[in-house]
Design a protein around this nucleic acid. Structure first.
Lengths: 200, 200
DNA sequence: TAAAAAACCGACCAATTAGTCTTTAAACCG
DNA sequence: CGGTTTAAAGACTAATTGGTCGGTTTTTTA
């Protein structure tokens, strides 16, 4: 049963992207085949190619989609807090092994870092992503400084530091869970953040 | 000109591993072909297969070799310092874009993290690697505590934290150099380490 | 309602590549 | 020196897979 309606693109593309994310998380980008993605998305390779003429174009879309989805989640949760410090630690939801995005999200993240480490184009995407997180953190820091809660010389620097801390802890927490519990991740990040925003 | 001498294995295997590391760093594990590695190592695919019957066996050896080489470097440099704090920051050599191992080392690291995120076996290798770094750091911390330089509740926890910090900063420094200078990396790590070993 | 366009299928092609196998040459050993 | 073992080459095989293409069905449009 083909083209049920003309707005089919707005259905198919998310379907395909979602399928691709899952396959990539499971097998990695290199072992993700168009056939598999197509099947998972409920169509044939020919159908898939109709929307994404090349594998590269599919991956690009998936990567951008993934980043923006995670970013959106983070931003929304942060915005639900008023207090600047609460905002800064609102990203601790990243350390939740029961989150539906847990496995998929981390696997995607490692895949993307690895292609970024090889490819300028993706490094640029990564750069923008980091930037957007840093800006988010920076805004909270500035708010805290204005409010008198924080003492920070350079809020951008502080934001970069906090962002890097989140990531370093995340890598350990995901890749070596045996030694890095949820509690470890959370308390470590909390304490480092406190230090970063209240020095000098 | 074949088998020049019987101790050839001890020459060929490092040659092959070295070639593989370079190819992997350049193209990633998935795009590393036996032919390319063989050629780079100065022999044919048949010759390569003689030493490593499968690609998997080659990769395993390469990963272990890589880890132990970098670890060795770190350990030796650390051991050249007496002062515990100097020892803790001795790993700042990791943030040197002119280091001969710079590109290769970081690329390998991302490749390995990514396979570790997919594969239990490699996660175990990663786990052991992290452990060995943590132990190295822990020893320095304990020394500093005994000496009275540091104030630390749980030296293992502190070591894990410092290790994660090194890694988080490293990821940013490598993947987004535009925004993360050598100086940023070094001063960030220095200041966070100081905090970690002297709190409470 | 007919023709044009869009959605979709799946057979096929061409390239890539891990691993096999046969052969050759050198090294070692008695 | 002759036989055995090891090192190495490289042609070949079989599987995989990205992308092409011709055709079919549905939807849109005029």
């Amino acid at each position: 049963m083909y083209g049920v309606n003309r707005a089919i693109q707005s259905i198919r593309i998310p379907q395909i992207v979602e399928a691709a994310v899952e396959i990539i998380a499971e097998r990695g980008i290199k072992d993700t085949t168009l056939d598999l993605v197509a099947k998972k998305a409920g169509l044939s390779k020919g159908g898939l190619i109709h929307y994404f003429p090349t594998k590269k174009s599919l991956i690009e879309t998936v990567v951008k989609e993934f980043f923006s989805r995670i970013f959106q989640r983070g931003k929304e949760l942060r915005d639900s807090f008023e207090d600047p410090y609460e905002q800064l630690i609102s990203f601790l939801w990243l350390y939740n092994r029961n989150d539906p995005d847990y496995f998929t999200g981390y696997r995607m993240f490692f895949e993307i870092m690895t292609i970024a480490s090889m490819d300028r184009e993706y490094r640029e995407v990564f750069h923008q992503w980091v930037n957007s997180w840093v800006e988010l953190l920076e805004a909270s820091i500035k708010k805290g400084v204005e409010k008198g809660d924080f003492e920070v010389e350079d809020s951008k620097e502080a934001a970069k530091t906090i962002s890097a801390i989140y990531q370093g802890v995340a890598s350990r927490w995901f890749l070596d869970p045996e030694n890095h519990s949820d509690e470890w991740a959370k308390s470590t990040v909390r304490s480092l953040i406190k230090f970063v925003v209240s020095r000098k």
